[in-house]
């Protein structure tokens, strides 16, 4: 089955109904195991103490916050090019999730920052980029809610999402340029990870769990969106009949 066959809403409903229980199970298992190992089995960091464990909540949230934007941009591209309502629904559904995960990354990041830097917000480059990403999500959602005509809202938001997607790497670069205080890409650096393997395992588990949590929530939201559209169509038919 290719992705275009999936674009049929009916098929998507069947397909997603079959997948959802698996996604939930994987998410819960990974998050449970990751949290247990991360919080109770991993020794405290010799410099940062127990606070380092915020990392297990913070880093995957940031990953998913970015992944949600990428998903939204890809769905928007499909919506613009193929004019398919399912792609529009997928883009619309991804935005609030992305905003929530980004907000989670921002909150945990500043909580982590207080003991580390002595202030909740020190204009760290990475957190600042995420703050701007958060505003991009807010603008996207505001535009959706402001345009009444559904197809027009979908197209306008798709354009905005794509402009944002083109601009995001530049924003990221400019913020890094502006503030070189950041820690550096400590996970995927050349010559292997710098983080001790004891931290790495629970981190990957958490990232996996977060990803499936996002996928499950995303699917639920797309399903809700499809059902809401069906309800509206029915209402219109009843109204005009």
């Amino acid at each position: 089955m290719n992705i275009f066959e999936l674009a049929n809403p009916k098929r998507f409903m069947r397909f997603s109904a079959a997948l959802l229980p698996w996604f939930w199970t994987i998410a819960v298992l990974c998050l449970g195991a990751g949290l247990y190992i991360g919080l109770f089995r991993v020794p405290p960091d010799y410099q940062q103490g127990q606070t380092v464990k915020i990392m297990f909540i913070h880093v995957p949230a940031a990953w998913v916050g970015m992944m949600a934007y990428a998903s939204m941009a890809v769905a928007s591209l499909f919506g613009l090019v193929n004019r398919h309502p399912l792609a529009d629904a997928a883009a619309k559904a991804a935005a609030p999730l992305g905003a929530v995960f980004t907000a989670l990354a921002l909150i945990t990041g500043s909580l982590w920052g207080k003991p580390m830097w002595g202030a909740y917000w020190v204009w760290d480059a990475r957190l600042t980029s995420f703050l701007i990403l958060f505003f991009l999500y807010l603008g996207y959602m505001a535009l959706w809610s402001a345009i009444e005509d559904e197809t027009r809202a979908a197209r306008a938001c798709a354009i905005l999402a794509l402009v944002g997607a083109v601009n995001l790497p530049i924003i990221k670069y400019s913020v890094d340029w502006w503030n070189t205080l950041h820690q550096g890409e400590s996970i995927f650096v050349k010559g292997g990870p710098l983080i001790a393997p004891v931290f790495l395992w629970p981190l990957f588990l958490m990232a996996f769990g977060y990803t499936f949590l996002f996928l499950a929530l995303w699917m639920v939201r797309i399903r809700t969106e499809i059902l809401a559209r069906r309800a509206r169509t029915l209402q219109l038919r009843m109204g005009t009949a």
Partner: peptide
């Protein structure tokens, strides 16, 4: 771009800055 996206919104002037300002952050920085 923001002006084009908000054409049909009656109070588009309120949404426009929210859409455009984050995109303009590199301009301010540089």
């Amino acid at each position: 771009i923001g002006a084009g996206l908000t054409i049909s919104i009656r109070r588009g002037g309120l949404i426009l800055p929210l859409l455009v300002l984050p995109l303009l952050s590199p301009v301010v920085i540089f």
